[in-house]
Amino acid sequence: MNGMTQIVKKVTQLMSGLIFMYGLYIITHGHLTPGGGFAGGAIVAGGFILLILAFGSKVISLRKEETQTSITESAALLIVILLALAGLFLGVHVFFNNYLPQGQVGELISAGVIPIYNIFIGMEVAAALLTIFLALVIYKEEVAS
């Protein structure tokens, strides 16, 4: 896949870091401000898609990246299920139990396990959207060649 012009590449270089930082902010502050794992994960995936579209890539490296994103996605979903399963053995023995100390409402480190769920759901969403995009791009490249 070919890249785009120099202007697009330069603007992407300047913007992609900000987009990643905004996505990570949305994920980690999900329990304080609007947003959360789904929104932040979609923003991070959008940043990766912008980089791939602007700079272009070879099919071999794209396929390597697809393997890694699918592994990330599956592992993140598995960790979410394991975290929820841990609630069965800690505290009051309920699936999806909030077993960590809750802390002060409004602090960054508060709300028990909710921020951890947010981080892993964000990883899962970002990796899933990126896997879908990479699968489409690889299919197009293979059919064209």
């Binding site: 999900g30 329990h31 959360g36 909030n98 802390g103 508060s110 709300a111 909710i114 947010n118 759901i121």
Partner: peptide, 20 residues
């Protein structure tokens, strides 16, 4: 829940199965 954002509190605590 201890979460200042009520939507996340509902999504990840009261309605955990929904998010899963």
């Amino acid at each position: 829940t201890g979460a200042a954002n009520l939507v996340t509190g509902v999504l990840f605590d009261f309605r955990g199965y929904d998010t899963l």
